[in-house]
Amino acid sequence: MNDNENKKTIVFPKGIPGFEDHTTFILEKEEDSPIVHLESAKDKEVGFVLFPPQLYFKNYLSKIEFGSEEVEALEITAEDTVEIWAIITLCLSDISKSTVNLRAPIVINPRTNQGFQFILNDENYSSRQQLFVDGQQEDKDRSNEEGAVG
């Protein structure tokens, strides 16, 4: 299928850590969902589930400073607004235990359709941040009682 509004080819000039030899990925939006898929063009077995972290983590990367490596890989200019995505590690036996990688967001420059996994220096961000369990445990308990989760 050719690229369209929901499906774009993104080039990761440096690959992705662990998959350094995969440089071309298909970014596909799920219908009616904040989730997108990032699938290696040469191997369908290599795929990631991404979501926009700022949806939950409001102040996440409100001030992002790129180094020369990111600027070069993404061809960022002053006019560009980049997309920030985070990789979800699904726990298939219990989806509520799934985690999200906030330490190394996927950054995409929509103008050049180039991507890069940006490993942050900030040790406060976890590569295994719980997605559904956080400090707001009370909220979660209440929703369980109402049967909204599960």
Partner: peptide
């Protein structure tokens, strides 16, 4: 070890993601 952790996390994420 941070880079190695990200590599490992990516491999785990990719293997557990039936898209």
């Amino acid at each position: 070890e941070v880079y190695e952790d990200i590599q490992k996390q990516n491999v785990e994420a990719a293997s557990g993601s039936p898209l």
